[in-house]
Structures are given as C-alpha cells and as structure tokens.
Design a protein around this nucleic acid. Structure first.
Ligand SMILES: [Zn+2]
Ligand SMILES: [Zn+2]
Ligand SMILES: [Zn+2]
Ligand SMILES: [Zn+2]
Lengths: 132, 132
DNA sequence: TAACAAACGTTATATTATAACACTATGATA
DNA sequence: TATCATAGTGTTATAATATAACGTTTGTTA
C-alpha cells in the first residue's frame, strides 16, 4: 500500500489540527495546541510539518510562515501550489485552476532552467473584505 | 520630481550593497556588512528594506527570507514578481516575461477576489547545476 | 533476528523579525 | 517664521521562527 502512506503518531496529530483549522496555522501555535498531547518541542512539530509537506498533505504559505491543509488532491506531492491571500483578513485559499497550473507547468524561461516545482501567491482583497 | 524618489542615507547604503551582490542577501548578512558604515541594529536594516520593497527597488524572495535588487524597472512598485530559484546552488533570477506577467495580472479566481499583487517562485535546476 | 531507515525526545542554539520609546531632519502651510 | 505633519534615525529589549546535535525507539524488510 504505497498509496495510503501511513502517518506516524505525531504526524497524524499535527495533520489533524491543521485540517480542522479554518486559517493557516503557525508552527508555534500548533506547538501550543498539541502540548496536551505530549508534543513538547518545536522540533517535533517542524519534523512532522516537513514530512507532511513532502507528502503533499499540507503546504507552507511562504509569505506568512504558516501552514494549511491541501485543498486539492495532495497537489502531486506539493509540486505546484497557488494561493490567494486576503491582505485584510488574512484568509488563505488554495487555488485549483487547471488552466493556471497547466500554464505554469509548461512555463520555461529563456535560460533553459528545469523547473520542478512552483509556488504562486496572489495578494488582495477577499469578497467579504471588499464589501466592508 | 516624483520619479527620482530620493532615498535616505541608510536606504542608499543598503540598496547599494544589495545591488552589488550576486546572490540574494539575508537581512543579518546585510547588517554585518554595513556595521562599518554605522548601521548597528537589525531594525535599521529592516526599516530600509521595507521602504526599498515598497518602492520596488528590491524584492524579498519569500521562500528564502532573502533580498534581491529588482532586475526589471522597479516592477511597478513590486506588484508583480516572479523568480527562478536553483535548489542546488541557490542562484536566484528575476523572471521578466511579458506573457507570463500579463497572464497572471489578468488571472481571476472563482470567488471574485481582487488581486493587487502576486509573487511566483519556480524551483529547479539551473543550467550550470544541470551539467554537473 | 539482524540490519536499516524513519521517527522520536530532548537540550541547546541559531536565525529572522518586531515592539517601544525618544529624538532628528525635512518640508509643507498658515 | 512658527507650527505642524511626515518620515527617518538610534537604541535596547524581546518576540517569533527554525535548526543542530545527540542518543533512543520503533517499524520494516531480508
Ligand atoms: Zn494542495
Ligand atoms: Zn478578507
Ligand atoms: Zn523586479
Ligand atoms: Zn544551480
């Protein structure tokens, strides 16, 4: 069963808390939230995060140093990510747009560099914040 | 002369060092390099960086927490940035591609969110590292 | 069961970034 | 010229984010 990669105890705990969250979570806020479950040190959190990112279960929102659960199908192991971020309320949504991802996957620069991954972040005003 | 926005002393010093660098510079490496010029504290660096970013003179490479001089024409005050990053040698190049930036500027998601800015980072292997 | 890889727990430390406060320079404006 | 607002400065302290290094445990596979 290579598909159903079985997660370790810490990895499960931390994935669970990220999946249940409505906003991106910071590493130390995760740490705070799992201390009652026996995870006491930053490294335990960061190690689980690293593995979950590798598996495509979560993504890091680079400009925010925060982590969100993948809202697609594990994003081909996190190779191609795009987010929209509201600069007012900090709401983050993972963009799932076939055309966009196809466009970016096929993009080549002039230098001939080989791209293995990309991360795209849009910043703006969400519809809720636009109204108010 | 709204064009030739005049920079302050610290801003000039720090822009200068970033422009001369061949790689992205980290804030504390900048700090180290300007201590002989009288800039002693992190905040002095971060404040100058913030202003230079606002002016589009430099950009932050989010996934690397590092700063590079704009290689375009100040990127419309930093609203639209794209980089290619070699994961082996950490070389960073600013991508200047009319089609790409037009595509991204016109991108709209399903939610109707208004995008004011974007940042795109490609990760891969540069041509030099590909050979070796 | 031996061997290996992955995960774990722990302590210490490195790296990145901001808060808060008082002061100074600059330029507009009344 | 007085006064006001804005931006910039210098400084100390501290917050927030992330990794190094070590030895142990667990789970898988041969
Ligand atoms: Zn995803
Ligand atoms: Zn919003
Ligand atoms: Zn630029
Ligand atoms: Zn390279």
């Amino acid at each position: 069963m290579a598909q159903t990669q079985t997660l370790s105890k810490n990895q499960k705990i931390i994935l669970d808390i990220i999946e249940k969250a409505k906003e991106p979570l910071k590493a130390y806020s995760i740490l705070f939230n799992v201390q009652k479950k026996g995870i006491k040190a930053p490294l335990q959190v960061y190690r689980a995060l690293a593995k979950l990112i590798k598996l495509g279960k979560i993504h890091k929102v680079e400009s925010r140093n925060a982590f969100v659960a993948c809202q697609n199908s594990n994003c081909e192991i996190s190779k191609a990510t795009a987010f929209s971020i509201c600069e007012t309320c900090e709401k983050v949504t993972e963009i799932s747009d076939q055309k966009l991802s196809k466009y970016l996957k096929n993009f080549h620069d002039k230098t001939g560099m080989i791209y293995k991954k990309y991360n795209l972040e849009f910043y703006g005003l969400c519809t809720t914040c636009k109204r108010s």
